[in-house]
């Protein structure tokens, strides 16, 4: 890793890594699957969900990246998966079982159809 030796270094480092980070730039065409993996999520089975997502993505050759993230705040609905597509509003899935995880990849990512029955409707005003 480089040493950042000034504020300028930090800024240019940021612009280098931004494209691979969890922050989606609108027209990057990237797709992220964020899985809530704080203690609450892991206890509810998030690690299995992540494994299924990874396997399905590989199997179907889907271009998506998995991001293990912290607590979404909706502990009652864990495990949770957020489908984050560049330039689109996120879709949050709750109570995700390994079967639902499979469908998320097959139906949502491959066929482009949202799994309405599993969607959690959230409205959070960010910073």
């Amino acid at each position: 890793m480089p040493k950042l030796l000034s504020w300028e270094d930090l800024k240019s480092y940021r612009s280098e890594i931004k494209g691979e980070s969890s922050l989606l730039e609108p027209d990057s065409g990237r797709v992220l699957l964020a899985v809530g993996e704080a203690t609450c999520g892991i206890a509810a089975g998030a690690k299995e969900v992540e494994a299924v997502l990874a396997k399905e993505i590989a199997k179907r050759g889907v271009n998506a990246q998995i991001i293990p993230t912290g607590c979404f705040g909706y502990c009652y609905a864990e495990p949770m998966v957020e489908v984050r597509k560049a330039g689109e509003p996120s879709v949050y899935y709750g109570y995700v079982t390994p079967e639902v995880a499979k469908s998320i990849v097959k139906r949502h990512l491959v066929e482009g159809r949202i799994l309405e029955d599993n969607v959690l409707h959230l409205e959070v005003e960010a910073e």
Binding site: R14, S21, A34, A38, P68, T69, G70, C71, F72, G73
Partner: peptide
């Protein structure tokens, strides 16, 4: 929380 990967400093940056 629930946005970035907590084990990635790049995500935080």
């Amino acid at each position: 929380c629930g946005v970035i990967d907590p084990e990635s400093i790049n995500d935080y940056i």
